[in-house]
């Protein structure tokens, strides 16, 4: 039976790159669909939730599409992969844009890097950095410990419950770069731009049966 994977389109971010990377790793039975319709999210077998840009603009765009309820439901029910801003807006609240309430699917805040102690470090955190896998997870399958992924961001998530942390990265300060909870996995880096490691993560996601 064909498997339908929906890449959520809310007008934010490089969803075509995400869809292309997923397509590259998908088998013949898997269809990658870009959609902004709540009913497609409801009927999908798995969800990829990308995102880019500012938190406020993302939340506004999500509100306008009427997808929030479907996304919250999907995040509790089916394989769900959040990428970059698609990780951050899962949290309760973000400091960005003078503070903005997010989807509250995961408890915790999104905060800005404070690099006053590290004047040599640049902002945004842009480039290839290592993810230290802090728990075993099907999505880390065949991805070596401390592999490098491509990042671009100035804010990071601080989950309330450390048990959901799946990966950590250091840029001046150590921060949570991946989280895992039941059927949900989300990553701060861009697997669609992270060469072999990123493609392997898509493959793992497409094969995942939580």
């Amino acid at each position: 039976m064909a498997k339908h994977v929906v890449v959520v389109d809310y007008g934010m971010g490089n969803l075509r790159s995400v869809a292309k990377a997923a397509e590259h790793m998908a088998d013949d039975q898997t269809k990658i669909i870009i959609s902004s319709h709540p009913q497609d999210i409801d009927s999908a077998d798995a969800i990829i939730f990308p995102g880019q840009g500012a938190a406020k603009a993302c939340m506004q765009a999500l509100n306008e599409t009427g997808m929030i309820h479907s996304l919250q439901k999907a995040a509790n029910e089916k394989p769900f992969l959040g990428i970059c801003m698609g990780l951050q807006v899962l949290m309760t609240h973000s400091q960005e844009n003078n503070g903005i309430d997010c989807l509250n699917i995961l408890k915790g805040d999104v905060v800005q890097f404070n690099l006053t102690a590290h004047p040599e470090l640049k902002m945004p955190h842009m480039g290839w950095n290592q993810i230290h896998q802090t728990q075993e997870h099907p999505l880390w399958h065949k991805i070596p410990q401390d592999s490098r992924f491509y990042f671009v961001h100035s804010y990071y998530v601080m989950p309330e419950t450390p048990e959901i942390i799946a990966g950590e990265t250091t840029h001046g300060t150590k921060f949570t770069s991946a989280i895992a909870k039941d059927n949900l996995f989300a990553i701060q880096a861009h697997p669609e731009k992270s060469a072999e490691s990123g493609l392997q993560l898509f493959k793992n996601f497409l094969n995942w049966q939580p």
């Binding site: 480039g127 290839w128 950095n129 290592q130 401390d146 990042f151 840029h171």
Partner: peptide, 8 residues
């Protein structure tokens, strides 16, 4: 462990 310098 930190950010890698890039070659483009």
């Amino acid at each position: 462990m930190s950010l890698a310098k890039r070659i483009i």
